[in-house]
Amino acid sequence: MQLRASSDASGVRTAMVNGMRGKRVVVTGGSRGLGEQIVRLLLAEGALVATCAREAAGLKALDASLSEEARTRLLTEELDVTEPGRLEDFVSTAAKRFRESVGPAAPDDVRAAAEADALDGIVACVGGSRGGAFEQTDIADWAATWEMNIGHAVRLTRAALPCLRGAGGGSIVLITSISGWKPGPPAQYGAAKSAQIHLAASLARELAPDGIRVNAVSPGSMLIPGRRWDRMRKEDPRAYAAFAGAELPGGEPVTPQEVARAVVFLLSDWASGVSGAHLPVDRAQNAPSPYGY
């Protein structure tokens, strides 16, 4: 296995591991933001990828932006991961389609890896929060936030376990947040992300005998077009500058591409000794919100 140079979506040249070629990976929430960058990097590294999202438009745009060869290694489906049974069916379908979609023109190592209905990795990237301040957030908001984060991660993992075991082991990465270990509102989001961090550590011990590694990655604030920090930067530049000056020691937030590199590393064979870890990727960010501690 060797290091080789590759370019991410931002055009930055970086040395990436050459251990993802032919790997079969399911990524939830892969049509935009961090999930999209994870999918793009996995495809650039030669992996077979299945991803889902609630809106078909983002998935179609992702597919259209790829090379013809990369599209042969990508499976997409529009679905809500909180809808009963849909996520589980998607995981099963992905494992089968990886085997069926690899044609005779594919490289030998890719075809060999896809001979069985199996998976080498999963990334639980869907997340979010419903409700607002504590007194304005009802129990239904708490339940919805829990299901989007910890509930979906549990269901994804349970559905993928037989496929991971079928591959002789694999890697699970749960996308959490610095809000899961650095306090800041809203409480329901931080509580759900904290639970994901604990889940990764617990499952790492429980699933180790099966050769399955489990790790959590906590991104800091990320500049994603149309999302919170990007809107603040455009609509209230003074507030954004105050936030960056107080909470971002490096002066700017981490990029989705930087977080994606950490995720792909944990999925790769180069991280074979890493399990039960909680990896913040946040440029040493202080508080996760403009409100400080």
Rank of each mutant, 00 (worst) to 15 (best):
156 L>S: 00
48 L>Q: 12
37 Q>D: 09
288 P>S: 01
28 T>C: 03
4 R>N: 13
287 A>D: 01
116 A>N: 12
27 V>H: 05
66 L>R: 08
21 R>C: 06
271 A>I: 02
181 W>C: 12
157 T>L: 02
293 Y>N: 11
102 V>E: 07
151 G>L: 02
175 I>W: 05
48 L>K: 04
117 D>S: 10
178 I>K: 03
165 R>T: 08
107 P>M: 03
24 R>M: 00
86 R>C: 12
50 A>D: 01
87 L>G: 07
107 P>G: 00
106 A>T: 04
134 F>A: 10
77 E>S: 12
22 G>K: 01
200 A>R: 01
247 E>S: 11
73 R>A: 08
90 F>R: 05
259 V>F: 08
268 S>N: 03
9 A>F: 12
18 N>S: 15
223 L>C: 06
283 R>T: 07
17 V>I: 12
273 G>F: 12
32 R>K: 15
289 S>N: 11
247 E>G: 09
247 E>C: 09
45 E>V: 03
293 Y>F: 13
175 I>A: 10
76 T>D: 10
99 R>V: 00
155 R>S: 07
76 T>K: 04
178 I>R: 07
194 S>G: 15
41 L>M: 07
16 M>R: 15
16 M>E: 14
244 A>S: 09
138 D>H: 04
19 G>S: 15
279 L>Q: 05
288 P>A: 09
149 N>Q: 00
66 L>A: 00
279 L>T: 04
187 A>I: 11
123 V>N: 10
267 L>C: 04
246 A>F: 08
42 L>T: 05
106 A>Y: 05
43 L>M: 01
24 R>K: 03
53 A>S: 09
49 V>P: 02
235 E>Q: 13
265 F>V: 01
31 S>V: 07
258 E>K: 07
92 S>P: 09
272 S>L: 09
197 I>Y: 00
158 R>C: 10
231 R>N: 13
186 P>L: 01
48 L>T: 07
53 A>C: 02
169 G>L: 01
274 V>D: 06
79 L>G: 05
271 A>S: 08
35 G>P: 02
293 Y>P: 13
53 A>L: 08
280 P>E: 02
124 A>S: 15
214 V>D: 10
135 E>D: 14
160 A>S: 11
127 G>F: 08
48 L>C: 12
185 P>T: 02
